[in-house]
Amino acid sequence: MTEYKLVVVGAGGVGKSALTIQLIQNHFVDEYDPTIEDSYRKQVVIDGETCLLDILDTAGQEEYSAMRDQYMRTGEGFLCVFAINNTKSFEDIHHYREQIKRVKDSEDVPMVLVGNKCDLPSRTVDTKQAQDLARSYGIPFIETSAKTRQGVDDAFYTLVREIRKHKEKMSKDGKKKKKKSKTKCVIM
């Protein structure tokens, strides 16, 4: 069974824990209790493949930012979460993405942009803004509501699919490099 290491990042209060708990335990946590770091595991079937999701729910508070490099190193894919009623959390996505790329030393890291709290009427981040940002990053965008469960499975499952595509691409690139290195030079 394939294991996928997913990391949920975003500013404090955007609903990272609520999304994760909704996926794992099928219930909505409405009281806000700032996370330092929590880890969850769940076995699911995605596109006919049974897999184990190892999900790291991270601290959004700035005082825990020193811990970010460590979990970013171990993560295979990242859910970059903002709240649709919090423009600052949307603007912060850029910083999370840049930090992930720096730590992973790669421009090509599996990510999904997630606009959470889409059940709320007080939207300050337009869907088109988020779609445009995701398009500019070359990553999928999904709106979710941890409260109603809308888009929750889709967000995590899409990230797994992005990781699969990335692994497939990397193995193809690896095979191309191996083929090239088999060419021999004969000096007579």
Score class of each variant (00 low, 15 high):
E3H: 05
Y4I: 13
Y4C: 13
K5L: 01
K5M: 03
K5E: 03
L6G: 01
V7W: 04
V7R: 00
V7G: 02
V8L: 02
V9W: 14
V9G: 03
G10H: 04
G10E: 01
G12Q: 02
G12L: 01
G12C: 01
V14N: 15
G15T: 02
S17L: 00
A18Y: 00
A18N: 15
L19K: 11
I21M: 15
Q22S: 13
N26V: 02
V29K: 01
V29I: 07
D33A: 01
D33Y: 08
P34Q: 14
P34F: 10
T35F: 15
T35W: 15
I36F: 05
I36N: 00
E37N: 01
D38T: 00
D38M: 00
R41Y: 00
R41Q: 00
K42D: 02
K42G: 02
K42L: 03
K42R: 09
Q43T: 09
V45Y: 03
V45G: 10
I46N: 05
D47F: 02
G48K: 05
G48Q: 08
E49D: 07
E49C: 04
T50W: 06
C51E: 06
C51W: 08
L52K: 03
L52A: 03
D54C: 01
I55P: 00
I55W: 15
L56N: 03
L56I: 02
G60Q: 15
E62P: 07
E62L: 06
E63A: 02
E63V: 01
Y64N: 05
S65I: 02
A66S: 11
D69Q: 12
D69I: 01
D69L: 05
Q70L: 13
Y71I: 13
M72C: 11
M72V: 08
R73Y: 10
R73M: 09
R73W: 03
R73K: 11
T74A: 10
T74M: 07
T74W: 04
T74Y: 05
G75E: 02
E76H: 15
G77Q: 00
F78C: 04
L79S: 00
L79T: 01
V81M: 12
V81Q: 09
V81G: 07
V81F: 04
I84W: 13
N86V: 03
N86D: 15
N86G: 11
T87N: 09
S89C: 15
I93T: 12
Y96K: 01
Q99V: 13
R102L: 11
V103T: 15
V103L: 14
V103A: 13
K104L: 08
D105R: 10
D105H: 05
D105W: 01
S106V: 10
E107D: 09
E107T: 13
D108H: 07
V109R: 12
P110Q: 03
P110I: 03
M111Q: 01
L113A: 07
L113I: 10
V114P: 01
G115F: 14
G115L: 08
N116T: 14
N116M: 15
N116S: 12
K117S: 14
K117I: 15
D119Q: 13
L120T: 13
L120W: 10
P121D: 14
P121M: 11
P121H: 11
P121C: 09
T124F: 08
D126Q: 06
D126R: 05
D126A: 06
Q129D: 13
Q129H: 07
Q131C: 10
D132W: 06
D132Q: 06
D132S: 05
A134K: 04
A134G: 06
S136G: 10
S136R: 09
T144V: 15
S145C: 06
S145I: 06
R149V: 06
R149D: 13
D154N: 07
D154L: 08
A155I: 07
F156W: 05
F156Y: 11
T158Y: 07
T158L: 06
L159T: 08
R161L: 05
R164G: 09
R164C: 13
K165E: 09
H166V: 09
K167D: 10
K167M: 10
K169R: 05
K172S: 12
K172N: 08
K172H: 05
D173T: 07
G174Y: 03
G174L: 06
K177Y: 10
K177S: 07
K178M: 05
K180E: 05
S181C: 10
K182R: 05
C185F: 13
V186G: 05
I187H: 07
I187A: 13
I187Q: 03
